[in-house]
């Protein structure tokens, strides 16, 4: 029977662990904050936006605890250079197509590890003289479990193809290797107890609002395009795919100029299919983004359509974006 005042951690050691946690949390919250602007998907943006503040509060609570442990306030410290390298790697994916990698790093690698570490710490911290640290960790545990569940919901939504799933697994494996090599957030090795893996049966109250964010992202499943314009867009797109120089020009509005440069950019991606990716209105005009996808990438045409006596006519068109074909996997 252990003595109730038996302790595993000295004051100095406890302060060091807290600096280590603060280091990981601070870097994660800065990364999440910076990524919001790089992430196109609304659901992922909202996920990150919600969790930046929770993490800032964790870092703040850790930082305020430090002077109580005879250490300077609000200081972060990595356990070793290898953990700093792990965080560097976690922050690497900044491409607009790399939302999955960003979320995997935080929600499938870092946060489950922090959760397991905090639980391990609480289990070993003395309940008589370490309640201040335990209370902070208990709040962090609750938040991290909720974050992981929400992150998993969004990841399942975004990593929706076998190729994306594979990308996620490869990236997760790489980061987990770096984390293990660093000995985890404390440098003392990975904790025995792992975080409960998030599953589809996760209680809804732990799922944050993630499902709602996905719904909000999908509010429009079918663009409200009038039937006659829809038919025109189909024919216009087909004519461009057919590379028939004269055919698409039939839809030009009086006085509008055909953009030969736009046409060339479009053909450069060897388009094989087209679809509407955005539909907006300015008064009676309709702005339509048409994406042409092919072997060498995708080109997005921004077109403006105006109603005329003989049907819809294109009054302006320009290339809004050209994307080269996506790499299958992130670099090792």
């Amino acid at each position: 029977m252990p003595h109730p005042l038996e302790g595993r951690f000295s004051v100095d050691h406890s302060a060091r662990l807290i600096r280590n946690y603060r280091y990981a949390v601070e870097r994660a919250l800065r990364a999440l904050g910076g990524w919001i602007a790089l992430t196109p998907e609304i659901s992922a943006k909202l996920l990150m936006g919600r969790h930046v503040w929770d993490l800032a509060q964790h870092a703040d609570a850790f930082g305020k605890r430090l002077p109580e442990l005879r250490a300077p306030a609000q200081v972060s410290e990595p356990p070793n250079p290898a953990f700093a390298a792990f965080m560097d790697a976690l922050e690497e994916p900044e491409g607009k197509e790399q939302t999955v990698e960003r979320l995997v790093g935080v929600y499938r690698v870092l946060k489950p590890h922090l959760l397991a570490t905090y639980r391990d710490h609480v289990a070993r911290a003395n309940p008589v003289y370490e309640p201040p640290t335990r209370r902070i960790l208990e709040r962090c545990i609750e938040d991290e479990a909720r974050h992981i569940a929400a992150g998993e919901t969004i990841l399942r939504h975004l990593a929706s193809t076998p190729a994306l799933d594979e990308r996620a697994a490869v990236w997760q494996g790489r980061l987990e290797g770096l984390l293990a090599a660093a000995g985890g957030v404390t440098g003392d090795g990975l904790p025995q107890a792992s975080a409960a893996p998030p599953t589809a049966t996760q209680p809804p109250e732990l799922d944050d609002d993630a499902r709602e964010w996905i719904r909000l992202e999908r509010t429009v499943t079918v663009w409200p395009i009038p039937d006659d314009l829809r038919a025109t867009l189909q024919s216009f797109g087909d004519a461009l795919l057919a590379r028939d120089a004269a055919a698409p020009r039939r839809w030009l509005a009086a006085g509008a100029a055909w953009d030969v440069g736009a046409e060339s950019s479009l053909y450069a991606v060897k388009p094989a299919a087209h679809r509407v990716v955005a539909f907006a209105r300015v008064g009676h005009h309709r702005l339509v983004k048409l994406s042409f996808e092919g072997a060498d990438g995708a080109a997005t045409l921004l077109t403006r359509w105006v109603p005329a006596a003989d049907g819809w006519r294109v009054a302006a068109l320009e290339v809004a974006r050209v994307d080269a074909a996506r790499p299958a996997l992130p670099p090792p």
Binding site: L29, R30, A31, L32, G33, G34, W35, I36, A37, I42, K45, L46, M48, G49, R50, V52, W53, D54, L55, A56, D60, G63, Q74, D209, E212, W213, L216
Partner: peptide, 30 residues
């Protein structure tokens, strides 16, 4: 979010305020 990310040398309380603002703005979007 960029402000949280771009100024690690700023006082911690500044980061804290900006992180709070990120959360507020995310609710506003919703």
């Amino acid at each position: 979010g960029r402000t949280v990310c771009d100024f690690p040398e700023a006082p911690w309380e500044f980061t804290l305020d900006m992180a709070r603002q990120v959360w507020d703005e995310s609710r506003h979007v919703e």
